[in-house]
Computed example of a mutant assay.
Amino acid sequence: MRHLTRQFAVGALRRGNGIEQFLGGAQIDGEPVIRWVEISPGDGRYRISVHTVQDPDDGQVGDLPNLMSVDPVDEEYAGEGRELGVTEDEVEAMSLAERLAGARPDRWVNHAVVGEEYRDYVRSRREDVRTAT
């Protein structure tokens, strides 16, 4: 089970470890993209950012921050995402991410695990296509 309980997610942030959540796929100008939200601790604060990148549709890809961003805000600082907010409280950071990015309370993972969530997403799309034919 890779998803963190609320208590474990808060604990990770308090220990200085980031958490993130895969938000799924979307279309921007007819192009497939994927999105995830991240909470990064630093200097006693928690930065909430959302990432929107091109969807390579590749089940081998796991390092999502290295994918091409489609958000102009992220072009100058690749991999940092669009900042949604900053707070000094880890519970408030999670609530902000859930409210502003549509994150779910039961889907948080440790930092760098969101790539596994993406690989599952690609596999499930391919299985859906196979079962539909």
Rank of each mutant, 00 (worst) to 15 (best):
M1S: 15
H3K: 10
T5Y: 00
R6E: 15
Q7P: 00
F8G: 00
F8T: 15
A9G: 01
V10D: 12
R14N: 11
N17E: 15
E20D: 09
E20I: 09
L23Y: 03
L23Q: 10
G24C: 01
Q27N: 03
I28G: 01
I28T: 07
D29N: 13
V33K: 06
I34W: 01
I34Y: 05
W36T: 11
V37Q: 09
S40I: 12
G42M: 10
D43M: 09
R45H: 14
R47I: 12
R47E: 13
R47Q: 11
R47S: 06
I48E: 09
I48H: 08
S49Y: 02
T52G: 02
V53N: 12
V53I: 10
Q54A: 15
D55L: 05
P56L: 13
P56Y: 08
D57M: 07
D57K: 13
G59A: 15
V61I: 13
L64D: 11
L64R: 06
N66T: 11
M68A: 15
M68H: 11
M68K: 14
S69A: 08
S69R: 06
S69Y: 01
V73D: 14
Y77E: 15
A78L: 13
G79F: 09
R82T: 12
R82C: 02
E83L: 04
E83K: 03
V86G: 00
T87K: 02
T87S: 12
T87V: 14
E88M: 08
D89S: 02
E90S: 13
V91I: 14
V91S: 08
A93L: 04
A93V: 03
M94K: 04
E98K: 00
R99Y: 12
A101Q: 00
A103Q: 00
R104Y: 08
D106R: 03
D106V: 01
N110T: 06
H111K: 13
A112R: 14
V113G: 00
V113F: 03
V113C: 06
R119F: 00
S124Y: 07
S124M: 12
R126H: 12
R126V: 11
R126A: 13
E127R: 10
D128A: 15
D128G: 06
R130C: 01
T131M: 12
T131V: 14
A132I: 02
A132Q: 11
T133F: 11
